Computed example of a mutant assay.
Amino acid sequence: MPQKIYPRSKDRETIYLKNVISNPNIIVGDYTIYNDFVKEPREFEKNNVLYQYPINQDKLIIGKFCSIACGAKFIFNSANHSLSSLSTYPFPIFFEEWNLDVKDIKNAWDNKGDIVIGNDVWVGYEAVILAGVTIGDGAVIGARAVVTKNIPPYTIVGGVPAKPIRKRFSQETIDFLLKIKWWNWSEEHIRQHITEIQLGNIEYLR
Score class of each variant (00 low, 15 high):
residue 42 R to Y: 03
residue 48 N to G: 03
residue 51 Y to K: 11
residue 28 V to D: 02
residue 33 I to R: 13
residue 21 I to L: 02
residue 52 Q to M: 14
residue 30 D to L: 03
residue 39 K to C: 12
residue 36 D to T: 08
residue 36 D to M: 00
residue 36 D to R: 10
residue 31 Y to S: 04
residue 32 T to A: 03
residue 39 K to H: 13
residue 46 K to P: 01
residue 31 Y to M: 06
residue 51 Y to Q: 07
residue 56 N to C: 08
residue 30 D to V: 04
residue 25 N to S: 05
residue 38 V to E: 11
residue 55 I to T: 08
residue 53 Y to F: 13
residue 29 G to A: 06
residue 39 K to F: 11
residue 32 T to M: 05
residue 46 K to V: 07
residue 34 Y to L: 05
residue 23 N to W: 01
residue 25 N to I: 00
residue 35 N to T: 15
residue 34 Y to I: 02
residue 25 N to E: 06
residue 33 I to M: 11
residue 39 K to W: 10
residue 26 I to L: 10
residue 53 Y to C: 09
residue 36 D to W: 07
residue 55 I to G: 08
residue 29 G to E: 09
residue 54 P to A: 08
residue 22 S to K: 15
residue 36 D to V: 09
residue 25 N to Y: 14
residue 31 Y to G: 00
residue 30 D to Y: 03
residue 37 F to R: 10
residue 47 N to F: 10
residue 45 E to N: 01
residue 29 G to I: 11
residue 34 Y to Q: 09
residue 22 S to R: 13
residue 52 Q to D: 09
residue 22 S to E: 12
residue 50 L to N: 13
residue 50 L to P: 05
residue 25 N to R: 15
residue 22 S to L: 10
residue 52 Q to K: 13
residue 43 E to L: 13
residue 33 I to Q: 11
residue 47 N to Q: 13
residue 54 P to R: 13
residue 29 G to T: 02
residue 56 N to A: 15
residue 45 E to L: 08
residue 27 I to D: 08
residue 37 F to I: 14
residue 20 V to C: 10
residue 32 T to G: 05
residue 32 T to V: 06
residue 40 E to M: 07
residue 27 I to G: 01
